[in-house]
Simulated scan of single mutants.
Amino acid sequence: MKKIVVTGAGAVLGQGIIKSLRAASLPCEILSLDPNPLSAGLYWTDRSMLIPMASDPSYASVIEQILRLESPDAVLVGTDVELDIFAKHRHAWESKFGTKILVSDENVVEIADDKFATVEFLERHGLSHPQSVRGEDDHALAQLIEDVGFPLIVKPRRGARAVGVSMVHDVAQLTNALAGRSNLIVQQMAGEEDQEFTAGVVYFDGAVQASIILRRDLRDGNTYRAYSGDFSAYREYVHDIASALKPHGPANFQFRVDGKGVPRLFEINARFSGTTPMRAIFGFNEVDLCLRKLLLNEDVVEPKIREGTVVRFLEEQFIDERKIPWATER
């Protein structure tokens, strides 16, 4: 029985990791962490603990204390805001506490976190992407409009779940979208809405060990329907991105395909993603694959993908007042 710590029990990502662990073939005890006592994922695991917000100065020392007391076999990070902390301390904590922390190097996390850094990374490696410029670069903006026209996508350089993202159809809308804001990126529309894909890879030992590509529909920035199919035409593209990025374990790539069949990547997640539990339903349980590799030194075997559609829906959960020992003030 392996002891696995999962952070972010209140986040879509953290909860998806817990779901995938529960569906995994690796027997494990799960310890979930989150700052909020009413986070649903805290009640799905064998044990749970409250921790500070990642922005709290005490966060790293609290994590160190948990690693010292619990001696987990592995730690899985369930929110974006914790990634850079775990990336910074990964090698030291692994050595000091004898655990495995599934997080990529700091430079990989930074490339994924900053969408303009993502564009620069793709350009360096000759990989297709939407033409993109900084929002404050007026000359480059004018050139972008001349080169690709409208519509254009305006988004924060750092962000998630389509928060702050808008599509603009003319100069007036573009001006309005940029007004009073900073650290924005303006991009060519990568492709049509019905040609959006999400890909997951497992990367170890300098190579992609397994991958899956799904077409998806979005709602409020999250995948709510995913479709398997023969998307092998984009396999080489996905593998080329992963080989250039060199993540540690899981990575997620989101792209659209234009009218000429060219895939254009617009977002990297250097981690498990919100679609991780959906991919597990298709047969690609990347959480299980990564842990069996890290903890049992098993070779990663490319899973057989089920043909069909996975749909996501809301679900309610009752929490007995007596099971909320931390919620003394609300």
Rank of each mutant, 00 (worst) to 15 (best):
K3W: 01
V6D: 02
T7Q: 02
T7L: 02
G10R: 02
I18H: 00
I18W: 00
R22D: 00
E29K: 11
D34G: 09
P35D: 08
S39W: 10
A40Q: 13
A40N: 13
L42H: 07
T45G: 06
T45E: 09
S48F: 10
M49L: 15
L50D: 06
L50N: 05
L50A: 04
M53T: 10
A54S: 15
I63F: 09
I63W: 10
L67H: 12
R68S: 15
S71A: 15
P72I: 09
A74L: 02
V75D: 07
L76A: 02
E82G: 09
E82N: 12
D84Q: 14
I85M: 13
F86H: 08
K88Q: 13
H91M: 14
A92F: 13
A92R: 14
K96Y: 08
K96Q: 15
K96F: 05
I101A: 02
V109T: 05
V109C: 05
D113M: 05
D114E: 09
F116K: 07
A117D: 13
V119Q: 07
F121M: 06
L122Y: 02
E123Y: 03
P130V: 03
S132D: 06
V133N: 10
R134Q: 07
A142P: 01
L144I: 08
L144S: 07
K155W: 08
R161K: 12
V168H: 05
H169P: 04
H169F: 13
V171A: 12
A172F: 11
T175V: 08
L178D: 09
R181F: 04
S182C: 01
L184S: 09
M189G: 03
G191V: 09
G200C: 13
Y203W: 15
F204K: 12
Q209D: 14
I212W: 07
T223M: 03
T223V: 14
Y224M: 04
Y224P: 00
R225T: 10
S232Y: 02
Y234F: 15
R235W: 05
E236Q: 12
V238L: 05
S243M: 11
P247F: 01
G249P: 04
F253V: 09
F255L: 03
F255D: 06
V257R: 07
P263D: 11
R264N: 08
I268T: 08
F272A: 01
S273D: 15
S273H: 07
P277A: 03
F282D: 06
F284R: 04
D288H: 05
L291V: 00
L294H: 01
K304G: 11
G308D: 08
V310M: 03
V311S: 14
F313C: 06
Q317G: 06
R322Q: 10
K323S: 14
P325D: 10
P325A: 09
R330A: 14
